[in-house]
């Protein structure tokens, strides 16, 4: 974890530089900053806007358009539950209700490309299939440890 504001600023500038400060690389840059920081802090957005020479309004427009980008840290483990049709057909609704009832925060995903082996979830970018309530608890327990 980088501590001070200048350190963070330098890192953001460096990431932008790696992408030749091209505005077209904005989404790549946002991904990278979010991966490293866990979310997109306001300061970082200002720094990116400056480095790419685009307006702050533009960058907020982009950040708010895409579901992936968040401006606050996640409440817990990075859990995505597929809420799309193929997983609905095999009980993803129950799974989501179970997660809610047990205070496991999650984000809705609309298809994780595992539609033959639903219900599908993704935890820290790893895909899991045929996930029922028990299996979800088990997976989250492993992650929490």
């Amino acid at each position: 974890m980088l501590a001070t504001r200048p350190e963070k600023q330098n890192r953001v500038r460096q990431i932008c530089k790696e992408h030749n400060a091209k505005p077209s690389a904005l989404i790549e840059i946002l991904h990278q900053v979010q991966d490293e920081t866990g979310f997109l802090p306001k300061d970082a957005l200002v720094d990116i806007a400056d480095a790419l020479n685009i307006s702050r309004a533009d960058i907020y427009g982009v950040v708010t358009f895409y579901h992936d980008f968040r401006q606050a840290p996640l409440a817990g483990i990075d859990l995505k539950i597929c809420r799309a049709e193929a997983c609905q057909a095999v009980g993803s609704q129950n799974l989501a209700e179970h997660a809610k009832a047990n205070n496991h925060p999650f984000t809705d995903a609309y298809c994780l490309g595992n539609c033959a082996l639903g219900p599908a979830v993704m935890i820290d970018k790893k895909l899991y299939g045929r996930v029922d309530a028990d299996r979800l608890d088990q997976l989250l327990k492993q992650k929490g440890e």
Binding site: A84, E85, A86, C87, Y110, C111, G113, N114, C115, A116
Partner: peptide, 11 residues
């Protein structure tokens, strides 16, 4: 982008 639910062939 293979966004359609129920599809995974591109992947």
């Amino acid at each position: 982008d293979e966004g359609d639910s129920g599809t995974f062939a591109d992947r």
